[in-house]
Design a protein around this nucleic acid. Sequence first.
DNA 1: GGCTCGTCATAAGCAACCCTTATGACCAGA
DNA 2: TCTGGTCATAAGGGTTGCTTATGACGAGCC
Lengths: 302, 302
Amino acid sequence: MFPDRVPDLAALGLLLDVAATGSLTRAAAEHGVSQPAASARIAGMERLLGFPVLVRSSTGSRLTPQGALVADWARDLLASAAALDAGAASLRADRDVRLPVAASLTVAEHLLPRWLVTLAVEHPDTVVSLDAMNSAAVARAVLDRGADLGFVEGPSVPAGMHSRTVARDRLLVVVPAGHPWTRRRGPVPAAELAATRLVHREPASGTRVSWETALAAHAPFAPPLLELSSAGAVRSAIAAGAGPGVISSLAAEPDLAGGRLAVVAVEGMDLERRLRAVWPRGARLTGAAQDLLEIALRAPRR
Amino acid sequence: MFPDRVPDLAALGLLLDVAATGSLTRAAAEHGVSQPAASARIAGMERLLGFPVLVRSSTGSRLTPQGALVADWARDLLASAAALDAGAASLRADRDVRLPVAASLTVAEHLLPRWLVTLAVEHPDTVVSLDAMNSAAVARAVLDRGADLGFVEGPSVPAGMHSRTVARDRLLVVVPAGHPWTRRRGPVPAAELAATRLVHREPASGTRVSWETALAAHAPFAPPLLELSSAGAVRSAIAAGAGPGVISSLAAEPDLAGGRLAVVAVEGMDLERRLRAVWPRGARLTGAAQDLLEIALRAPRR
DNA sequence: GGCTCGTCATAAGCAACCCTTATGACCAGA
DNA sequence: TCTGGTCATAAGGGTTGCTTATGACGAGCC
């Protein structure tokens, strides 16, 4: 992996504390280390980055303009770290569970971690135990009371359950930057897509099922170009030039924003999906499940 | 800062390499360390996380289901790290510049780093030198040929320049989760907003200027509740319950997705802004500037 | 069935790093 | 000028993490 010359998380966190408190000494205390340690950390970070991030004075320390940019990027990085931490905590908590949650892979990967961070802030006592599986298995887990709350993707609500739509995503046909399709005039018709070999997830995945459902009228399909077991692998393969592929808009977002992938317009098929929270009909949501549902509903539906 | 129990970047990068190569030994080689070191790193990560991420066998190593989730979250984290790295590299490059770029803070913070990552992949030889400043200063820098390419925000194109819209954002009125306004029926009218004390950026900022321009008909304004010098500080203050505030949709996105902040509907004002690439009228874009512009245009416009 | 090659884990030695306490230089305000 | 705050430097100690060398284990192949 490339990311070289990146300060470690502790140093970046310290930088944000300095920005907030205006003093290296106070930031050190807040961070639970001695003042010289904090001083050395920042100095090391400046050596690594190659430019100063702080203006020191005898009244405290302020960010340089460059330091302020670094601090903003660091906030992003630490938000991702917090998401990973919250997700990992919920995977770890299989013994002393308070709130067992089952989620489809798309939700577990891309949405739940941020909700868990918020939950941890607003309700620090709640311990979530997360289990990621496909949508059908989520429905089973919830009905069997193996999970208090579930998150599923797909066109229909499983029988016997209440549901609320918490987000939407869309299957996208994407190509690497520079692919001929990026210069194509009109949208690609569904029939042509069905006849094209694409980079796909494995057959049991929600993404693959949704795709084949949306294109059902144009079966049979061309065999997949590649069949990969995670959204990340699909992204990488497409970006590396393997060919066009199908991917959830949630998973594609970073590569689209970075311009490594491009969306191909299509016509003749409905690729929008709802991501739903589900729980057994008749069951009252427990307090903790209610909290998590509210946080999910509060976030934008896209 | 919270993020505790997060493996360091090197360990996460190693995990992705293992996922890609299917072998700890190969991943170690790819990563430039010895095999026992890689083994120990992963073992340490598992100790930290509290669950295994790999299934070892005598034919190689595969991810556990939990490990696959961690790997996906790690991809996010490393993407942020790559963005920081690319941004820092462009700040560092003030001597041996190839492509001097001037950008408004919003673009420099939220969009450019990802474009730079893509640029680094597609054109490894190009060295970008980034200078972040307000939009008026960007226009000056570009006209004076201090920068080959500029990125500005705001309603109008500076005189004497070509421009292409590379993105849009929107000023949002946001409140912390649970604020009374989240339960309000209709949108908040512009006149009421003008009379409300809000958390703001400093007066010279593009965000503040755009806000006051959009609300010009309802001047004078109530004094700010707080006046902070970075978008991150504004976000934190609002999330901590200081009160309603104004913030770019780009800066608000992570907190909205996490449900820590909520958008308030408003009426009677146009808060959409264009973010534009600009260069001097009559000047041909150099090859490198052309590359960067293309990457920016390829990314979704929102 | 035994050989070989690949996997990963363990052990021992060594180097680097980081943190802590103690101290000094410097500046602002009383 | 004195006091209280800032941050940097120095010396010592503990921990971590790396490397090389070796061992255990399983798969595939004669």
